[in-house]
Amino acid sequence: MGITIHLIDYIVLGIISVALLLDFYRFTRGPLASDRVMATDTMTVSTTALLVFLGYLFDRYIYLDIALIYAVLGFIGVIVIARYLEGGV
């Protein structure tokens, strides 16, 4: 069976891509380390949502597990860097 992708799916994917690009703009421009970490965090959350949606489009349940693990790893990374900025690790 083939994968059917409707117009609305393309629209949703497009909006999410623009959101990711905006996050990426902040990530490249900074100007502070905190800004970059925050942009990474936002990108992680957006990517989690994107992975779940892709999982629906491709009809693969495993994408949900990947999204969950991705969210966990992103969360831990942000916490570690925040602790580092605070000066406590």
């Binding site: 502070l32 970490v37 925050m38 959350v45 969210a71 942000v78 916490i79 860097i81 925040a82 900025l85």
Partner: peptide
């Protein structure tokens, strides 16, 4: 997501302020 995101943004805000 609902549990982890406020924690990370709070940690980041506090870290930035202490920085």
């Amino acid at each position: 997501i609902a549990l982890s995101n406020p924690l990370s943004s709070h940690a980041l805000a506090r870290g930035s302020y202490r920085h």
